Simulated assay, not measured.
Amino acid sequence: MLARRLQPMASQARRLYVELMFQVMGNALQAISEIDDDVQNEVRALPEGFLFEMMVMPHGASLVIEHLGNGRFRYHGSEAPRPVNLSIQFKHIAHAFLVLSFQEKTSVAFANDRMLVDGDIGYAVRMTRILNRLEAFILPRLLARRAVKEYPRNLHLPEKLLNATRIYLKVASQFFDTVRA
Rank of each mutant, 00 (worst) to 15 (best):
L134A: 04
E79N: 14
R126F: 02
S33D: 09
Y17S: 07
K160W: 12
R141P: 02
N163F: 06
I32W: 01
L161H: 02
Q103T: 11
A31R: 00
R133S: 06
R15D: 14
L29C: 05
G69K: 03
P81R: 11
S173E: 14
A124D: 00
E104Q: 13
I65P: 05
F50P: 00
Q174F: 01
L143H: 05
I35W: 02
R82G: 12
P140N: 11
E53T: 04
P158C: 04
V56F: 05
E135M: 15
D38P: 07
I93C: 11
L161S: 08
L157D: 14
Y168A: 09
Q23A: 10
F137L: 13
V18K: 01
Q89R: 12
L6K: 15
I130Y: 01
V148D: 04
A80T: 05
N163C: 02
P158S: 06
V148R: 01
L29M: 12
N27P: 08
H95D: 15
H67K: 09
L116P: 05
A13V: 11
R72V: 07
M57H: 11
Q30Y: 00
N70Y: 12
M25C: 12
V64I: 13
E135C: 09
V43I: 08
F22P: 01
G122P: 00
L16M: 14
L46K: 02
L16Y: 14
K91R: 15
D37C: 10
A109E: 06
D118E: 13
T128C: 03
R74T: 11
R153H: 12
I121D: 00
E34Y: 10
F137K: 04
L161E: 10
I32C: 03
R141D: 15
D177W: 05
L63S: 04
G49S: 08
